[in-house]
Write a protein that binds this DNA or RNA. Structure first.
Lengths: 182, 182
DNA sequence: ACCTGAACACCGTTCAAGT
DNA sequence: ACCTGAACACCGTTCAAGT
């Protein structure tokens, strides 16, 4: 990548992070290009779809969460490990309001720029879930996709301003349905 | 209302129902006016906001659900009554994909055209919940808003195409967290 | 009293023309 | 190789002008 191209890429990503944090997943990409001082076509060259922007924004977060799952798998008791991880996933999603819907859609859409990250995250969560299930600490009739769906639902709830004050209780309620002993 | 105005109103509502069922809550209202063979200003006259369209579309459904809650309150055992009602609310929401987010936002926005309906529905659900709680059949640390939130989350899950196949299990999982005995 | 549609200020996306 | 921005086809919303 030419150095001017790289500079544009970095600048676009920085501005996108700012604008999307401010205005959510449907923020105007035109506005992002404008604020970045870059032509509209340049944005589309670097990020052919909106999902590609999300992917770039979330990549490091995703990687961290996957590593975190592996770490929790050996360092903590199964039920606490699962709970802690779920909290962190919801927190990441909360920092990117509205993106979660694209992530859910990406689960079974291999064309999406978010697909690979979703599959990896889902697998990481599934491992933590399975471990808890094998110790009879989690509902046995659930798989990684169900877990992903519940996290998505919690994240969506956290995106609703009216429900922010009760986000913690809602987390506890839904978490209790996952960790019910078999 | 003049008879021509009434005719336009009915026509707009019929077309809106069709278009929103097809394309979801963000469907183009311009398109609705076009398909209804009516000027754009006419649509805005009858429905000053998008929420006003939703409200008109959902009104009878809301009324039915409120009546249904009252009926279930005397005819069925508390836990089954609550479950049955939740299923029916989710089903209604599912028939209007995307509208649920507006409903959640309307809970604490008295300006919204959906506010009154939401409050009424929330109260109806809260009565069923309270009855189940008093018989120790439902989680005691929950109120009507929490119930509304969980229904909203389930409806949102039902709006995600990738999750439709597991909608029933997800319902069971979340329902189990409501109906846990104290 | 009600309806129409042009006008305005925005989008997303593409692509010829430039450097 | 990369960038620009005009062009196109859409929005939502308002409001003067019509009947």
């Amino acid at each position: 990548m030419r150095s001017d191209a790289k500079k544009n890429y970095e600048q676009l990503l920085a501005v996108a992070r700012e604008v999307i944090t401010e205005q959510g997943a449907n923020a105007s990409l035109r506005d992002v290009a404008r604020r970045a001082g870059v032509g509209l076509g340049t944005l589309y060259r670097h990020f052919p779809t909106r999902e590609a922007v999300f992917e770039a924004l979330l990549r490091t977060g995703f990687d961290d969460l996957t590593a975190r799952a592996t770490e929790l798998e050996t360092s903590t008791v199964p039920d606490e490990a699962l709970l802690t991880w779920l909290r962190e996933v919801v927190a990441l999603a909360h920092r990117h309001s509205g993106v979660i819907a694209s992530m859910v859609a990406a689960i079974d859409d291999p064309e999406s720029a978010l697909h690979a990250s979703c599959v990896t995250m889902k697998a990481a969560g599934a491992r933590l879930l399975k471990r808890a299930q094998s110790k009879k600490l989690a509902r046995p009739d659930m798989d990684g996709v169900d877990l992903f769906a519940l996290v998505a639902a919690l994240s969506w709830l956290g995106d609703q301003p009216a429900l922010v004050p009760r986000a913690e209780r809602l987390f506890d309620i839904i978490a209790s349905s996952i960790l019910k002993k078999s």
